[in-house]
């Protein structure tokens, strides 16, 4: 495994671990999600640069556009949760358990 790939793998799995284990506030989860998307963006950009495939040169931008949409959606949900639950803590999202 090349060292660049190892670096981005570590980045991805650290962000995934952040989503899984550190979920106090929705904002921190959203930041980890951005970390995931950023590592994917870098992986995709480096892959298309290294292999010189013209077909895939545009894909990092597409990925970035989608991740921006997703981040916007996440922030909208953050605001909606703050309005309905009073705080955006993930621990307070318990009304559906019963």
């Amino acid at each position: 495994m090349p060292s660049t790939q190892f670096v981005f793998f570590t980045m991805f799995f650290l962000s995934l671990g952040g989503i899984t284990f550190y979920r106090n506030h929705i904002l921190s989860v959203l930041l980890c999600l951005e970390g995931l998307m950023l590592s994917l963006f870098l992986l995709l950009a480096i892959w298309s640069l290294e292999t010189n495939t013209t077909l895939f040169m545009a894909t990092p931008m597409l990925l970035l556009a989608f991740s921006a949409c997703e981040a916007g959606l996440g922030l909208a949900l953050l605001i909606a949760t703050t309005r309905t639950h009073g705080a955006a803590n993930l621990n307070s999202l318990t009304t559906l358990r019963w």
Binding site: S39, L77, H85, T95
Partner: peptide, 20 residues
Amino acid sequence: TEAATKYFLIQAPAAATILF
């Protein structure tokens, strides 16, 4: 709202993992 938040927080990392 809570259902939407939970659904988003489940689906987005799963989709990211698929692409990864």
